[in-house]
C-alpha cells in the first residue's frame, strides 16, 4: 500500500476543521489542522502536505494572503491548494485562481461527497 497522502486543513472554525479532518481520515488521508493563517503557514513548511484546504475568511491573516505567501515561498510554491469559502462572488473566485489555487469550493454549495471527489481529483491530477 502506498504511503498515505497528507492534507493540511487551515480553518478558524474548529468544528469545520474537525469535520474535514475526520472525513479525510475516513477517506484514508493523513490529516493535519491549523486554526489560523500564521499557524497554517508554519505547518505547511513543516509538513509539506500534498494538499492544503484553505479557508478564506479568517481573522489575523486573510486566506488569500496565506495563499499568496505560500505561492511566493520556494519551499511551498508547488503545494496544491483548494480554497474553501463561504463567499461565492466571482471576484474572490478569480483572485483565488489568479493567486494559484487549484480549485475553489464554496462551503455549503458543495456537499461533503463533492468535496471528497474534488480533493481526489486534484491529488490525482
Amino acid at each position: 500500500m502506498a504511503k498515505k497522502e497528507k492534507i493540511l486543513v487551515v480553518d478558524d472554525d474548529k468544528g469545520l476543521c474537525q469535520l474535514y479532518k475526520l472525513t479525510m481520515e475516513q477517506e484514508g488521508y493523513e490529516v493535519f489542522t491549523a486554526n489560523q493563517g500564521e499557524e497554517g503557514l508554519s505547518r505547511a513548511l513543516e509538513i509539506k502536505p500534498d494538499l492544503i484546504l484553505l479557508d478564506i475568511m479568517m481573522p489575523m491573516i486573510h486566506g488569500l494572503n496565506v495563499l499568496d505567501i505560500l505561492k511566493a515561498t520556494p519551499e511551498t510554491k508547488d503545494l496544491k491548494v483548494i480554497v474553501l469559502s463561504a463567499l461565492s462572488d466571482e471576484e474572490t473566485k478569480n483572485k483565488a485562481r489568479e493567486f494559484g489555487a487549484s480549485d475553489y469550493i464554496v462551503k455549503s454549495q458543495s456537499t461533503m461527497a463533492e468535496v471528497i471527489g474534488r480533493v481526489a481529483d486534484i491529488l490525482n491530477a
Binding site: T23, A86, S108
Partner: peptide, 15 residues
Amino acid sequence: EMRTPLAQIEGFLFL
C-alpha cells in the same frame, strides 16, 4: 451565516 453551520451538519452526517 447559515452557510457554515449547514455545511457542518451535512458534513458530519456524511461522516
